[in-house]
């Protein structure tokens, strides 16, 4: 018994000492993605990084162009002190060459032979209910890991990172377009209860606060509980999600829908086949929206 009280006492002392030492020597910033010290990485691995840099000189030249782009610069300055260089460089930004419909990155090899503005999935005849989608990042392992941890591991602090990317992407892609209202893609109540939060709504809220655009999180609802899109096969995914979404309008005026002739921005985390965005856009259009634009983090 005496040992346990003693150790408890000691532990309390240590706790207090920690508090005081933290006042005097504040902890250095930690990367919210890889949880390592940002400053330590900058100094310790500098030499190592330089070596890599020399070796991959040719590859880096093309990437350098990428990293001098205004969009990337802005995001980087927004995230400085939160994300380390190594994690940031793993993100692959879609900048100039993208599909006009779904926003997918069209690599130079693809566009060389066709000179097309469309990717393989999108053709001009394939009519979508939304006007177009724009994505900030190409879907790769790094962003997949970040979104997975955000959604399924409940790391809410990653919302800041993703919102900063989304906010800058909005300013980049949608600067000329007037948006009246932001609507995040909803979750089913059961899924929402299981996860505790709606990832699209979290990002959407921060985006709306940053851009001073009203947000509507309650209107569009997911009324049918379907299997997770990420667990389906591709064939199942492109099957239309009819009747899954519904728009419950709170009409103040009997004649007017709140979305009438408004242009709506739909927010989601990942755009894979566009089925979800299309189903939402269909419902929103039926509710009176004039245009539906989509902004996703990754494509």
């Amino acid at each position: 018994m005496s040992t346990s009280t003693k150790s408890k006492f000691r532990f309390q002392w240590k706790e207090w000492l920690n508090v005081i030492s933290e006042l005097i020597y504040p902890k250095p910033p930690v990367c919210i993605v890889c949880k390592t010290d940002i400053l330590a990485k900058a100094t310790f691995h500098n030499q190592n990084h330089n070596q890599n840099h020399n070796q991959n000189h040719n590859r880096n030249q093309t990437e350098n162009y990428n990293h001098t782009h205004t969009l990337v610069k802005r995001i980087k300055s927004d995230l400085s002190g939160e994300v380390c260089n190594a994690c940031f460089e793993k993100l692959e930004f879609i900048l100039d060459s993208y599909c006009v419909v779904c926003g997918r990155l069209i690599s130079s090899a693809d566009s060389a032979d066709t000179q097309s503005q469309f990717c393989q999935d999108c053709s001009p005849d394939n009519q979508r209910y939304f006007t177009y989608n724009r994505a900030a990042l190409a879907y790769n392992e790094a962003i997949q890991d970040i979104i997975h941890r955000f959604k399924y591991r409940g790391q809410r602090e990653l919302a800041d990172l993703l919102a900063a990317i989304a906010c800058n992407a909005f300013k980049y892609y949608y600067q000329d377009i007037h948006i009246d209202i932001i609507i995040p893609v909803p979750l089913h109540v059961d899924r929402l209860a299981e996860r505790g939060f709606n990832q699209a709504a979290l990002i959407g809220n921060k985006l709306a606060a940053g851009l001073k655009i009203p947000i509507d999180t309650s209107g569009l609802q997911r009324v049918l509980h379907t299997q997770k899109q990420s667990k389906k096969t591709r064939w199942d995914r492109i099957q239309p999600l009819d009747g899954v979404f519904a728009y419950k309008e709170q009409r103040t005026n009997q004649l007017e829908s709140p979305l009438l002739n408004k242009s709506v921005l739909l927010i989601d985390d990942i755009y894979t086949t566009g089925t979800t965005a299309d189903a939402c856009a269909k419902v929103l259009k039926a509710a009176g929206a004039a245009n539906v634009y989509v902004l996703t983090l990754a494509r």
Binding site: L187, L192, G196, F197
Partner: peptide
């Protein structure tokens, strides 16, 4: 946080 389960503010352990 704003909980999606109980529809009000509640606490979550990270």
């Amino acid at each position: 946080h704003d909980c999606g389960g109980c529809q009000q503010e509640c606490y979550v352990c990270s």
